[in-house]
Design a protein around this nucleic acid. Structure first.
Lengths: 153, 153
DNA sequence: TTCGATGCAAACACTTTGCATTGGC
DNA sequence: GCCAATGCAAAGTGTTTGCATCGAA
């Protein structure tokens, strides 16, 4: 809620406006909490269910806007599945474990990874913005199916 | 070249065939070496230049095939830019440093990152397949422009 | 009242697919 | 010769954009 006040300020600073649609999109992410990864379509659907109609085009525009304001963060996942999550300052630097079969996603944190990213950036002369590790693997259930299973399809 | 022999074997094992197109695609990646990240369109263009015509549809089909055979590896980059690189066994586990402004990409390796990924996978009960760290940052030239520059756009 | 934002639909870029033909084995 | 693979073009995805209207400030 404090965030919403912020949002208005930030928008005004850029000569932009706080519209109900923008608030609804950000609210949705805030209601779900930091651990959720939503695609544009997910957001659109969720808002429809919540009787808060926002056109898909506006969802796209808003996701881009909020990401550019660092209120949301775009995940880096394989296969063109663009997803966004709330970019809460503290929870910002976490990583993802993605099941290669069912797509299930878990999060974890690791200082070692952050350090490694920072040192690599330094060595190459880059200014660090963010580090994200994506670990592909099989989740327990899919691993069980594969391991104990019959022939592969 | 040894790889090509392999390819034939692998394909036959799956009841599939070694076609000139498939060989051309794999050859292209091998000729370029392990450090190159090509999109489907890149591959298509490169092959055209090399007078080795392969239809775009076949490029897509072949990239998927070779990835499923673990001969290529699909990169995980932001913004729906799907790219592939040669999945040479030893050079397999490296990470990427991507400039947020110009898109320039550098590679690096880090055992610490691999360890962190492995331990996270273990904790969550996942079977590890691969770990990729993507570090976003500003490359030296873009950082210079931003840092010394005027107001942001 | 003003000018940025929305909604719609058309336009896009990228990827996949149906089908007739080609060609590896 | 058989059946997988190709090429083409058409069909799908997911995302962006032009334009008239709406509405925040």
């Amino acid at each position: 809620m404090a965030v919403s006040g912020n949002l208005r300020q930030d928008l005004h600073g850029r000569g932009q406006r706080l519209t109900p649609q923008r608030q609804r999109v950000l609210d949705l992410f805030e209601r779900m909490g930091a651990g959720h990864h939503l695609s544009a379509e997910d957001v659109h659907q969720q808002l429809l269910k919540a009787d808060a109609r926002v056109s898909l085009a506006t969802v796209y525009r808003t996701l881009r806007l909020l990401s550019s304001m660092d209120l949301l963060h775009e995940l880096e996942l394989p296969e063109g599945s663009r997803r966004f999550e709330l970019a809460n300052a503290e929870d910002d630097e976490h990583h993802h474990l993605v099941c290669a079969v069912c797509g299930r996603t878990e999060e974890f944190e690791s200082q070692a990874v952050l350090d490694a990213g920072a040192s690599a950036a330094e060595i190459k002369g880059f200014t660090l913005l963010s580090s994200r590790l994506t670990v592909r693997g099989l989740c327990p259930s899919c691993a069980a199916l594969q391991g104990g299973g019959s022939s592969e399809s």
